[in-house]
Every structure is written in C-alpha cells, then in structure tokens.
Nucleic acid binder design. Sequence first.
RNA 1: GCGAAAGUGGCGGAAUUGGCAGACGCACCAGACUUAGGAUCUGGCGGAGCAAUCCAUGGGGGUUCGAGUCCCCCCUUUCGCACCA
Length: 832
Amino acid sequence: MAEEIEKRYDPSAIEPKWQQKWAADPALYAAEPIDCGKPKYYVLEMLPYPSGQLHMGHVRNYSIGDALARHMWMRGYNVLHPMGWDAFGLPAENAALKNNTPPREWTLSNIAAMKRQMERLGLGYDWATEVTTCLPDYYRWNQWFFLRMYEKDLVYRKKSKVNWCPECATVLANEQVVDGCCWRHETTLVEQRDLVQWFFRITAYAQELLEGLDKLEGWPEKVRTMQRNWIGRSEGTEVDFKVRGSGETIRVFTTRVDTIFGATSVQLAPQHALVDAFTAADPALKVLVDELIEQQKKAREAGDLGAIEKHGVATGRVAINPYNGQPVPIWVANYILADYGTGAIMSVPGHDERDFEFANKYGLEVRRVIAPLPESEEAALPFTSEEGVLVNSGEFTGLSCSDAQILMQVVAERGRFGEPKVTFRLKDWGVSRQRYWGTPIPMIHCETDGLVPVPDEQLPVVLPAQIEITQQGGSPLGRVADFVNVTCPKCGGPARRETDTMDTFVDSSWYFYRYTDAKNSSAPFDPATAQYWFPIDQYIGGVEHAILHLIYSRFWTKVMRDLGLIKNDEPARRLFTQGMVIKDGAKMSKSKGNVVSPDDMIAKYGADATRMYALFAAPPDRDLDWQEDGVAGVSRFLARVWRLATKYAPVARAARDQAAEAPTGIALKLLRKLHQTIAKITLDFEGRWHFNTCVAAIMELVNEIQAADAQLAAGEVPAPAIRELLRTLVLLLAPLAPYLAAELWEELGEEGAVLRATWPVSDPELAKEDELEVPVQINGKLVSVVRVPAGSDAKTIEAAALAEEKVQSRTTGKTVAKVIVVPGKLVNLVVK
RNA sequence: GCGAAAGUGGCGGAAUUGGCAGACGCACCAGACUUAGGAUCUGGCGGAGCAAUCCAUGGGGGUUCGAGUCCCCCCUUUCGCACCA
C-alpha cells in the first residue's frame, strides 16, 4: 500500500522540489561569458505586458522557446535565454484610477505574480539579465537614444492631425488605429485632433527597411509581405499643373505619367491647401467641400475608406496640362487622400478604374491614350494594363508605356515642371503620448533658447512618483509643478519640462540589446557583448506584432548601427510566429467565457503536462485548440514514463559500471527504435519544429518499451541496454518536460543536471532495420506486403513480390506488362 | 476586389523527397484486474459489406505505374491588404 502511493507520478511533489533547486542555482540558466569558447545561441521570446496573469498564449510561446533553449544547452551552446517586462502603458493608469494603486506599485506586483507563474512553469530564464522597462535604469536609455536621435535629426516636432482615442485620452500611432477604432478599445471611434507632436524620422530608413526584407530569409514570408505593404513603396512622377489665371501650381503624383494625355481633370483632396484658398472666396464651395471632408471622416472612422461612395465638387477653376497645354477642370473629391503623395492627382478615366467611376458619375470626358498591344484583344475602357502603346499623345504617340514613362520624366525635368519621385506609404513614427506611465521625453522648453535637450548627465528624467491620475485630457505630468518647472540648461533661466511621454513601442524596440548587458549604468549596453550575441538566432512571438513592434525594432537597430553601437543590420536572424490558442473554435476571451487559466492546468496536471500539451496538440505555427482531455492524456503519458523509469531504475543504476555488449533479440529491437527516435527528434529540433510529432515519437518509443515489459521483467534485456533506453528517454524528454526529466535523471543515478548532459546522438547502424516490409501493389492498388532483408536489390525484391501468394493468384493468366521497384519503398506491378 | 495560408475519421492531428492514408493523443466500445475507481492493463475503433472486396484526404477534371502531396477549374474557412493615384 505505502509502496503504491510512493510510486505514483505526482507532479505537485516533484515540480516544486526542482523549482526550489533551480531557484537556488541561478548559474544553471545563466549565459556564460562571451569568451567561453562555445558557439552562442540567442533564443528570445517576446516580452509580455505585465497584466498580472499569464494566459495560454504566453504558455505556448514560452514552452516553445524553453524547449529550444534547453535543446541548445544540451547541444553544448552558450545560450542566452532572457525574459523581461514591457511594463509601461495605459492599463497601469486605468488600474490606478480604479483601485487607487500607484501605477508603479500595481505594475511591480503584477511582475512578481507573473514571474512566479513563469518559475512554476519551470521556464529556464537567466533572471540576472531581467529587464523592466518602467524602471529608470532602463528608460534612461530610451531618453539617451532620443537625444542621440535628436542630434542626428531623426527626432522632430510638428503640428499634425493626430488620432485621438477619447477612451485612452491620448494620441495613437497610425498603427494603433484598427478599422477606425482604437486598438485597445475596439468599439471606440478615433477622432482627429491638431497637436504638436514628437516624431521619429523612420521614413529616412524606408528604403533600407524595405530592401532588408529580401535578406530576412529566416522570417515568415507572411510577415515580410505585411511589412512590404506597410512601407508601400511606389515609383512614379510628380507633375506640376498651373492654375489658369493665378500664379499657383498643383503638384500631382502619378505612377502612370504615360497616360497624362488622357487626363481630363485634376482632383484635389478636400484638405488640400489650395482648396482653402478657393473656398475662402466662395462660401458656397466651402459648404460642399466640408461635406466631402465629413464623408471622408465618417468612412475613415467606419474603417472602410475603400468603400466610400465617390463624391466630388467642381471648383470652376482650370489647370493646364504641362505636356500639351490643354486646360482641364479642377475638382475636389472625397476619395483623394491628403496625406498620401501630394494630396492631388490627375484623373485619367480611360486608364484608371477609380477615375473611370468618378468620370462616369459626373459626366467627365473619357479619353483613350493607350492602345493594347496587337496580340491583346481586350480594348474596352478603362484599360489599365501597362502592356500597351501610346495613342493620341502628341510626340509620345507610338511609344510603349514603359519607354514613355522614362522619356516623359526626362521632358518634365528639362521643362522644370516635374520629376521622378518615389513615394512611401510609411509615415514618420509619432511617439508623443499625453500620459503619465511612460518614458518622459527629455526636452526642455525655454522662452529664451527654445527647445533645449536635457544634458546627458541629467539623465534619467525620472517620472515623479506622487501623482494624481485623472481621466481629464492633457498630460498628467503637466500638473506636477516640481516636474515641470526647471531651469534651462543653457541660460539658467526658468523653463518648462516637456510633459509628453514616449509611446511604449519605444521600450520594446531595443530591449533585447539590454539583455546582453542589463546592469550597465554607463551605457545602454557594451558594444562588444552585443556584437557577440547579435543577431538574435531565434525570435518567437505572435504574428500580431508583424508590423508595429517588428518594424520599429528593425528601425531602431539600423539607427544604433549608424550610431556605431552595433554592427548588425537586423535584430533577428530567424523569426517564428506561433499560432493562437483557441478554445471551442474561438480565441480565448473573457467575454466568450472560454478562458483556460494556466494556474488551474498546473494545479491539476502539473507544469510538465501543461507545457507538453501546448507542444503536442498542434504544430507550433498553427492555431491550437485547447482540450483539457488532451492535457489529461499527456499527463497519463508522463505517469506511464514515470512508472516505467522508476520500475527499472534499480537495474539501470546497477548497470552504470557494466560494459554494454552487442544487443540481440528484443534488446536490439528496442535500441533500434530508440535510435530511430533520437534521429527523428533531433531533426525536428533542427529544422521543422514540429514538436507535436516529437512528442508522438517519444510516445511511440515508450509504448514499445512498455510492450516489452514482460521480457524486461524476465531479464531478457541486458542491464546496460535498459540503462541506455531509460537514460536516453529522459534526455529526449528533458526539453519538453523538464521537471520529470530532472527527477528521473536523479532516480536513474545519473550525475549532474540533465540540462548539462549531452544530447544523444543517433547511431545510424543501430537505427537501421535489417528486414523491410515492402508493400506490393497491382495497378497501383495495395495487394500484399513482402518481407525482404534490408538492402536487397530490385531484382530480389521483384522476385519476392512475384512469388507472393496473393500476387500469384492475381497474375495467373494475365500479363505482367511492367514492374516498378522502388528499393526500400514498394513494388508496383502493371498487369493487363 | 487583390494576395497568402488552410480544408484528411466523432475531435486535435500524422504522412519531411510523388510510394502502405489516418502515426500519436482524445472520445467512444468491449474485456481483464478490483477494498467498484474519473486508476491501471488488454483489444477494437474512417465508411459500406457476412465475406472476398469496394469506397474514401472540400468538389470536378488532368499528369503519372502510382496523387492527401504536382497541374487546371470551382467551393468553403481564416488571415493580410484594399480608393495609396
């Protein structure tokens, strides 16, 4: 009875025991010095926002990263596997309002809670490198970088229309506006306001950010495509149209200057500067234009700008096409965007779908200036292909579209009415936030000296601790007199501190560099150390960060490189985006009531079973359907491993000094399976990352060993073979179920930490089968299976197949027209 | 509308290079053990059929000795982009 209880697999006893041991031995998961002589491997999972609770998505993300890190440790690498906290942000302020808890306190206690959860999960992080972005020793370097970027003219201020979320009471970046609503408040419409904002000049790197994507072969194509779309490079031409009877010109951007002889109007965005001039003199026009603005705003808010019904207003003014001197009417239209290109276009209804639709609606002329190539039959307008020849285009008639574009650009430049132009959709990164819980922007406003950067030696500009958080607009810091009132570093006179704080995406843009040298108090990090660890070998996280975080991180890396801090151009060599965790076909959410708590799973099944299920239930790049019965199944499997290992542990221990003999019989069979399993799992870790099949392979191995239980018990398998089986099984399990592996490693009498043991190597000779089952098909249909010795040649296999009974009965009286033998694979007889 | 990914038993999924479809797990069924239990072990488990066999990887065509895998057309789902001139 007592013995029975002792033998039961009890993760709630094993796991806390090892958790304590690991906590007492920080060197276990610590990165080694950069001169340790081992090859380095930097595995990184995206740092979480400290909400206070891990969710299953985290568990999945970190289980993948931890398995990889452990595998690499066992492969002899110097592994950096850090963790940190994306600790600034609005929820802390909301919590302060709700519970009257200071944001700092709230955040730090959440961090403590989540760290406990991570430790309970047995995740092997190097906590000595922990980064918490809301602490001054981290965010002072945000400020430092801000100043360096200010010096390089990569930071500037401008008044701009900003996305304002009434719920957050702050400005949002374009990237944070989803379908016209706030990314955090999916039902709150974003408003447009005019504010002076700080910007990072990310567009200075637009071209390099785009080109770099081609070299990021270790990144998912999907992410690269999304970034390409976001950057939105477009090559074209800018052309000036003179406004008749005034000195004004309208500059338009077009990718199809070759169609300009077909331009039958010029269209301005309702916010275009010239429109203001027109409406100033014409109140009736202003009413109509305001309507267009209103329509555009509504469509933008509704998130379907693309579906807006086209409306336009004729201004009564006329512009002159510089290529042929022809007058065209000037319109204002609601489908022209003020913030793209020049905010004005030439409308060519004959060769553009949108212009065609607009022209039809308002009865504007549709003119053909491109004819399809002879072999193309389709000639109907609008004809938008670039495979064509110019017609009705004056001196350019007869040229191909591509030749015409080049020549017309030359003509424009010579005539000083236009030039080639590359336009990007990417906008500069607005980083100002009118919030408290973020990095203070290190600038001072002085009446005498204007904008004055905070001198480096005054960093960090520390967030005041005592502050009243309210929901009123404007920055909370503005109400803290001690913070705001400073002396100007230049003239010593009274001045005001900047009260905006930085977007939290600043924090996450470079945190992974800080991990390499987290305690450095004189620099953001030591360049030599960063050069050793970078680029990150494997970055793992959710695809929801494909644009925001990952494009800012790439930008920041290039800026740091140009500051001479690092040598790498890109932060991460390989990126892996794991799938979502869903339940009952839907993303886990409180509103759907389908949230599964990691704590509950751990309490019920243990951390090993929870983690292993997260790896087993689906390949890591796909969505994972959480089924608790599946966790129970993995738990049962681990219990089976436990019983098997503990049952034969005494035999294995006793065999430690025994020499192994060449295995035969059942021992050979089991060792063969073992070495096949080693090969499969090693391959999966190296390339495919299908941890679900890794787990399945280990299950198969255990099933086979267990099926031989009677022989094992009867002593038919030599003790050294039993030892090799169990010991290797534990090694294979170590990255996936670290607690159980540690416990069984000790149980088997093995020395040291299993994490420091060497990853097993498959012996190809031992893994090889000596007899093969070869399927035999007749006309492609399976008929039978023959057994032949491994390595048999085609002739032998063919003879064996033809001699097979079922094959005989089906071929007698018929002709075997052809025999296909794929050695080791199959035999197919073509029978007539 | 454009682009990408996916579609395989009751469920999650496997099949890595064109070569035995359904590994492994869950659920379910039967049995064993039993101080009766949501423990463990054994066996079964795509569909039809007593069977031999036949059918089967979203649907339809094709290439091939052979197709879940390659090609063409279509359907569905998910994701991304969408007046970007």
